[in-house]
Amino acid sequence: MARPSQSARWLMHLILSAVVAWSLLAPGTAVWAMSDKTLMKGSRGEDVYELQDRLKFLGLYRGAVDGVFGWNTYWSVRSFQSGHGFSATGQVDDRTRRALLEATKAYKPRHHSSTHVAGGMGKFSANDIKLMANAVYGEARGEPLIGQVAVAAVILNRLDDPRFPKSIPAIIFQPGAFTAVSDGQIWLTPKPEARKAVMDAIQGWDPTDGAVYYFNPATATSKWIWSRPQIKKIGKHIFCR
């Protein structure tokens, strides 16, 4: 039998390549676009974007698909790992990646330009973040990081609650809302930890479990604040609904 000509072999190669490409993109076939690097809290970029998208597809992730591996992503990964009998490390290693691929076969990968990655700020302006850091520092600068994150989380929780104003400045400067505003400590220069606390809260860490109020039981005299349903105590503050 005569050997195929070079042009014939090239045509066969193109046809085979097309068949392989079609099989990879066929409905019901999962295609993993992520790299094989381990993802963890603090990771950023397209890999995290797809991770969040797949977790959202499974109903395990409710935060912004922003390409930033924050606390929301961390707890979603842990939930996925626990549900599959893995050690809940919160890190996406090769085993977790393969399991996620298997669990999201019906997911359709999308390309997300890196210009869409929000870098953790999302809908918050630089002024919002600065103002929140001032509030956190004024309200909780003597608290450990988790206590400062908790105060930032309360501000964000109020943003999602219809009982409160609809912007960060309006929430912080709502009359009587924060002691730091009343006594002027809102204008102190915050230390870097206060900004870190704000960014951790923006990226999904809410140690208060949804609180919209807090108070210091050693100094609070308001009967109303004591009447609020309490969730937990973090540092010197009690957080409540």
Rank of each mutant, 00 (worst) to 15 (best):
Pro4Phe: 15
Pro4Gln: 15
Pro4Asp: 11
Ser7Pro: 09
Ala8Pro: 04
Arg9Asn: 13
Arg9Phe: 15
Arg9Cys: 13
Trp10Phe: 13
Trp10Glu: 15
Leu11Thr: 12
Met12Gly: 11
Leu14Thr: 10
Ile15Cys: 10
Leu16Phe: 12
Ala18Thr: 14
Ala18Val: 13
Val19His: 12
Val19Ser: 14
Val20Gly: 12
Val20Cys: 13
Val20Lys: 12
Val20Glu: 14
Ala21Gln: 12
Ala21Arg: 14
Leu24Thr: 14
Leu25Ala: 15
Leu25Ser: 14
Ala26Thr: 15
Ala26Met: 15
Pro27Ser: 13
Pro27Arg: 14
Gly28Asp: 08
Gly28Lys: 12
Thr29Gln: 15
Val31Gly: 10
Trp32Ser: 11
Trp32Gly: 04
Ala33Asn: 10
Asp36Glu: 13
Lys37Phe: 09
Leu39Cys: 03
Leu39Ile: 03
Leu39Phe: 08
Met40Arg: 11
Lys41His: 07
Gly42Asn: 04
Arg44Cys: 07
Gly45Tyr: 02
Gly45Lys: 05
Val48Tyr: 00
Val48Met: 02
Val48Leu: 02
Val48His: 02
Tyr49Glu: 08
Glu50Ile: 01
Gln52Ala: 01
Gln52Glu: 12
Leu55Ala: 06
Lys56Gly: 05
Phe57Thr: 03
Leu58Ser: 04
Leu58Ala: 06
Leu58Thr: 05
Gly59Ser: 08
Gly59Asn: 08
Tyr61Trp: 07
Arg62Glu: 08
Gly63Asn: 02
Gly63Gln: 05
Gly63Tyr: 06
Ala64Gly: 03
Ala64Trp: 08
Val65Tyr: 03
Val65Trp: 01
Asp66Ser: 05
Asp66Trp: 00
Asp66Gln: 03
Gly67Val: 04
Val68Ile: 09
Gly70Gln: 01
Gly70Lys: 00
Trp71Asp: 08
Trp71Val: 01
Trp71Arg: 05
Asn72Ala: 09
Asn72Glu: 10
Asn72Val: 00
Thr73Ile: 07
Ser76Cys: 07
Ser76Asn: 07
Ser76Val: 02
Val77Ala: 04
Arg78Asp: 06
Arg78Lys: 14
Arg78Phe: 01
Arg78Ile: 08
Ser79Thr: 11
Gln81Pro: 05
His84Arg: 14
Phe86Leu: 15
Ser87His: 12
Ser87Ala: 13
Ala88Ile: 06
Ala88Asn: 01
Ala88Met: 08
Ala88Trp: 02
Thr89Ile: 03
Thr89Gly: 10
Thr89Ser: 14
Gln91Met: 11
Val92Gln: 03
Asp93Pro: 03
Thr96Phe: 04
Thr96Ser: 00
Ala99Phe: 02
Leu101Asn: 09
Glu102Asn: 05
Glu102Lys: 09
Thr104Asp: 07
Thr104Arg: 01
Lys105Pro: 00
Ala106Thr: 09
Tyr107Met: 03
Lys108Leu: 09
Pro109Leu: 06
Arg110Gln: 09
Arg110Val: 10
Arg110Asn: 05
Arg110Phe: 02
Ser113Lys: 03
His116Gln: 09
Val117Gln: 07
Val117Leu: 09
Val117Thr: 05
Gly119Leu: 06
Gly119Met: 06
Gly119Glu: 09
Gly120Glu: 09
Gly120Asn: 06
Gly120Ser: 06
Met121Asp: 12
Met121Ser: 12
Met121Glu: 12
Gly122Tyr: 07
Lys123Tyr: 10
Lys123Trp: 10
Phe124Gly: 07
Asn127Ala: 14
Asn127Gln: 14
Asn127Thr: 12
Ile129Ala: 06
